[in-house]
Design a protein around this nucleic acid. Structure first.
Length: 488
DNA sequence: ATGTGC
């Protein structure tokens, strides 16, 4: 039932440009800066008022810089919206677990190959069966890789370096992970016994929800030069891994939320929403969370690395021979849920800020010192997974990204229908058949999970990507179409 | 997202 007098987002927002909308400081009491929503007019119709309220709430937090931002795929999240980007001054700002999310370093990686769609199509069904067998999926799934407590600590601290030293992936993979897959500043002593217990058996597991491993092919190249630099061309097969830090990251978030909830009171931070629990960036409580968050981030990079390794083995078992190098190189790996201490130019001055990206991708421009050498002139690759059955995109960051959005882009399609609603409205078997008729094969533990992730429950990934492209944050390089997907 | 819900 909709009330005619209900305020719409159009009544609140002030249009700045085609794809930029401002939430004025007066919208909610206590806003320190305006909100800034990067969205097209048509996507704005799908933006919920509550999401806008969350953007405004974040603007009230101490030390926030420039704007409380939301990407075109923004939707309601825990405290901060998913698709939210907020930078807080290193000295006067705060750190908040809600600005990162429960799935710390949920992220995406893309692996290229020398195989063509025609090579893979005839063997696709067997390939997917074997991938589904090799890579555990589902909520409570456990891995065949068992690590000791000491190894887990090593993973928390050294991330992907641990993986490569232990035979998962190769040295060349490291440079193609954001932060080299080993963010500095980890302190395992800030990770509870419970989080370790949950994390130990889950290295190399996909999890559930929107997490997946997808076999794809490139159906369109937008930028030949950039595509070539990443080793991508039309008709080529790729695979994409989307997952995070599983139970470990979830427990770390839960543990520290509790600490930061009381810290918010201790430091007299008035919160419009208790889910925004936070503490001054340099406080013991905030730093402890940050050190534990880094452990979860490094864990997630190892998780994706091990999954990639097993997937490479399966591809090799099906396609490798003495005359063919499969070229299963890691194109790039990006984090979607993370907070980082970065330097940004604010009012002409270089400033250190804790950038919180929750359901948002880092997008550093050409020439940025944190980029791998071979992408330095190109700009950071940005990987945007589509929802099940819809295209994914590869973009590369452009020079204005730092100025526009603290070097950040969107992260995906963005949910429009709740899981509960989707389960009620849609049948997994129908969705599977519909996808199958379009040549897309799905392997999942339960049909209901397919319903929850159906294409209809997400915004169009193409529209979301176009906003980021048109704004000059990251430009389109390639479009990837799904062939088959394994899910929890 | 999650050994799934004050």
């Amino acid at each position: 039932m909709s009330d005619e007098n209900e305020t719409s987002v159009f009544d609140v927002l002030k249009r700045i440009s085609d794809n930029e909308w401002e939430v004025p400081v007066g919208f909610k009491p206590g806003m320190n800066v305006p909100g800034r929503i990067f969205v097209s007019e048509s996507l704005l119709n799908m933006l919920e008022m509550e999401t806008l309220g969350q953007v405004a709430n974040v603007a009230t937090l101490p030390g926030i810089q420039k704007y409380s931002m939301a990407m075109p795929d923004a939707h309601l999240g825990y405290g901060f919206s998913i698709g939210g980007v907020a930078a807080f001054d290193k000295e006067t700002g705060i750190i908040s677990p809600g600005g990162v999310g429960f799935d710390i370093n949920c992220g995406v990686r893309l692996i290229r190959s020398n195989l063509s769609e025609q090579d893979v199509r005839p063997k696709l069904s067997e390939l997917l069966d074997d991938l589904f067998k090799a890579i555990p999926t589902g909520v409570g799934s456990k891995s065949r890789l068992r690590v000791t407590d000491a190894e887990l600590e090593d993973i928390f601290v050294h991330g992907v370096q641990w993986a490569v030293e232990n035979g998962y992936g190769v040295e060349a993979d490291i440079a193609h992970c954001e932060s080299k897959g080993q963010m500095p500043g980890a302190d395992p002593s800030k990770v509870s016994a419970k989080a370790r217990k949950r994390g130990r058996p889950q290295i190399g597991t996909l999890g559930s929800g929107n997490h997946f491993l997808e076999v794809q092919y490139i159906d369109k190249i937008y930028d030949e030069e950039a595509a070539a630099a990443m080793g991508l061309k039309e008709g080529q097969v790729t695979f994409m891994v989307h997952c995070g830090s599983r139970g470990a990251g979830h427990q770390i978030c839960t543990d520290h939320l509790q600490i930061l909830t009381s810290a918010s009171k201790k430091y007299n931070i008035s919160l419009p929403d208790r889910q925004l629990a936070c503490a001054p960036a340099q406080s013991q409580e905030a730093q402890d969370y940050f050190k534990a968050m880094v452990c979860a981030a490094n864990y997630a990079w190892v998780n994706r690395h091990v999954i990639m390794h097993w997937a490479r083995e399966i591809f090799e078992s099906h396609f490798a021979n003495d005359f063919c190098d499969l070229g299963l190189d890691l194109v790039y790996d990006v984090a979607h849920n993370i907070a980082k201490l970065e330097e940004h130019k604010i009012d002409g001055k270089n400033t250190e800020v804790y950038v919180h990206r929750k359901g948002a991708t880092r997008a550093f421009p050409p020439g940025h010192p944190d980029l791998p050498e071979d992408y330095l002139d190109l700009g950071q690759p940005v990987l945007i997974p589509g929802s099940m059955g819809t295209p994914s995109y590869v973009l590369c960051s452009t020079k204005d990204s730092m100025e526009i959005s603290f070097g950040s882009a969107c992260h995906g399609a963005g949910r429009v229908m709740s899981r509960k609603h989707a389960k009620k409205e849609l049948r997994g078997e129908d969705i599977r058949d519909e996808l199958s008729s379009r040549g897309i094969q799905v392997r999942a533990t339960q049909p209901s999970l397919i319903a929850e992730e159906a294409p209809a429950v997400y915004k169009s990934s193409s529209e979301v990507v176009d906003v980021v492209h048109d704004l000059g944050i990251a430009r389109k390089v390639a479009r990837l179409l799904p062939m088959g997907v394994i899910k929890g």
